[in-house]
Nucleic acid binder design. Structure first.
Lengths: 356, 356
DNA sequence: TACAAATTTGCATACGTATGCACAATGCCA
DNA sequence: TGGCATTGTGCATACGTATGCAAATTTGTA
């Protein structure tokens, strides 16, 4: 209140003096598993309380070579999927007594500054999500000996761990669903073209359609951005041979596409046009949209991510691990329904064709 | 790749040896403004590059007593307003060479663990946003001599800095707008009852309506949560004397209210019911909603927040500063329009009654 | 009670960097 | 060229904690 100067901050030595023990004793009191008698421990805790002492995590990190900080790199949070991920990560990391250093709001171009910061803080691990600089960054970090997990993304070289869902199978499932729904012409609104999720979803979708005899798929690119998705939708919906069904590479864009279709083109969904998305993010559940979508098991993805990191940190072994989880095709009202394959579970309708 | 063991990490001494200078010289090379000749500086930089050296921020913090870390506490990210804030904060802090330690995903109850972590990491400043544990936490932090800024919130004791918008005036502006629109009965769907934003918006709204001769306002509570807002909307819309106009304390809830009104009650907006929100968050701009809403100047709020922190950190003076910014009533399609007071600016329609 | 085993304690040192101080090197001006 | 002001450099130390080691204490057992 009164003092303008920097608070000195009470140290373990001060607590030691006050309690009449050595600095070591204080340290051991706050180090789980250290050898300390209950008696002195109580003395120390009492003095610590009086003086308002808290261990200095910075100094501790210097000695232990562990910062207990995990860096999370997310280029943008526009897509609600990522705030959800962030919140869940916060929970999961806190449970393991780790902290979350967030890197966001920077342009994708300049990866080096970010990498520099990461290295300077000696973070114990790195989670890369929703960023296109994965490849370069992950390489560098791996070289530096820091555990890295790609979240919802992979790279060609699989030297770095990743957690994903079966995007290719998801794309195929959507193709099957739309074909079963009786659609005859198909479109795809793509995400970032160099992202693994987009590549896999598109491949599964296109292959699935081809297998059913539909070789032509109209494709536009939305770059996982709302604005680009709107533009892509306008282009696609202006065509004379406008497709009857469109798979949009994620829900974030699907919302934009539905808005454009309904309010700019007066198209009825699903009567005139079927839309399927990916992620099962918040707005997909809102009644205005009710998007039929492939879900991604957020909690399990986060769990796996933290698992991998904790393993690698504990063992010191950095060997790449790839966890691939399953999603479900959640059926709502944005696409025409097939006659078969719909089952009820947990109050939701999901699509599970017989063959699967 | 090969080594499973912990990377040793190259130190300034190693660089010094390699470059044939003292450790001090290396330190000075990486300390802006330090006394170092261009010649040795180049030598050091060369060696640093060869060895892959990066200053250890942990060790540096220990010496300088500055972590260059700002803690951001956000209880939940469900409301898109806060991810937007987060992204902007990331940008602004990075520009000042600060980093963002995020605390989120915890239950509001247990404030102490969070506080402990904050203190242990010796963060240079704290930003409290969207959390109800502001009061307790901010007190403790202030006592500890750490700069704190409440973002979009205030407390009774104004010992701690804050950045807000004129919520009370905003509420009043909305009342004026709805009255000018010819509405005769009014509702309010509240946010968290103990939050300052909710209190102020409600007060301004109710007082504004009273001044126009409307003493009765139907009030339900949505707690800034989507689920609660849906329930509140159902209750309010089920009344025989259902209000013609509803001010919903933020856009996040307004979206839910519109969904319920349209799809569960078949109510047309704005023909049968006018809705006004607050924040001007993403979905408010989506054509499915087009919410008329009081905007909060996100960028300027973030700028101010970072400004205050930087000032207090630089000066060491922690004297509370309160920045109060202006928003605008952005007019879209969710509420009936008044005859006068609408003006065009930057391609948007805003409401500015003559008197103001 | 005595002695060995087990537990607790303090001492000293290390972690990687920044910085005050004294000294060396360089630049400047006449 | 000499002397002085200026700039650059190295030495030593400090930041707050963890931990190996040896000494001191407690505990258990016969």
């Amino acid at each position: 209140m009164d003092s303008g100067v920097k608070k000195p901050g009470v140290t373990s030595s001060q607590v030691a003096d006050h309690a009449g023990v050595s600095q070591s004793a204080v340290s051991r009191t706050f180090t789980p598993g250290a050898s300390i008698s209950p008696k002195t421990r109580q003395k120390v805790l009492a003095s610590a309380k009086v003086l308002g002492y808290r261990p200095n995590a910075i100094a501790r990190s210097l000695i232990t070579n562990r910062s207990r900080i995990i860096a999370v790199v997310m280029a943008y949070l526009e897509n609600l999927f990522y705030p959800d991920v962030l919140e869940e990560l916060g929970r999961a990391l806190a449970a393991e007594n780790y902290h979350l250093l967030l890197f966001t709001g920077f342009m994708d171009r300049d990866s080096d500054p970010v990498f520099d910061q990461l290295m300077q803080y000696r973070v114990d691990g790195i989670i890369l999500a929703s960023t296109s600089l994965s490849s370069e960054l992950s390489e560098e970090c791996a070289t530096a000996g820091i555990p890295v997990v790609l979240f919802n993304r992979t790279t060609e070289r699989d030297a770095v761990s990743s957690v994903t869902t079966r995007n290719k199978e998801g794309g195929k499932r959507i193709a099957d669903f739309l074909v079963a729904g009786g659609h005859k012409s198909f479109g795809y609104i793509a995400g970032l073209e160099n992202s693994s999720t987009n590549r896999d979803r598109q491949q599964g979708y296109v292959e699935g359609l081809a297998a059913a005899g539909f070789a032509d798929v109209v494709i536009e690119t939305g770059n996982y951005s709302r604005l680009d998705a709107e533009a892509a939708a306008r282009t696609m919906l202006s065509r004379k041979d406008r497709p009857e069904a469109i798979f949009v590479a994620n829900d974030h864009m699907a919302v934009a596409v539905m808005d454009v279709a309904r309010h700019e083109f007066g198209i009825r969904i699903p009567e005139d046009l079927s839309i399927v998305g990916y992620d099962d993010v918040g707005p997909a559940r809102w009644t205005s949209y009710g998007i039929t979508t492939m879900s991604q098991p957020l909690k399990r993805m986060v769990e796996s991510t933290v698992d991998i990191l904790m393993d690698q940190i504990a063992s010191g072994e950095i060997e790449a691990e790839h966890r691939i989880l399953n999603g479900d095709l959640i059926v709502r009202s944005s696409a025409r329904l097939p006659q078969t394959g719909l089952i009820e579970r947990d109050g939701q309708t999901i699509y599970r064709p017989r063959e699967a």
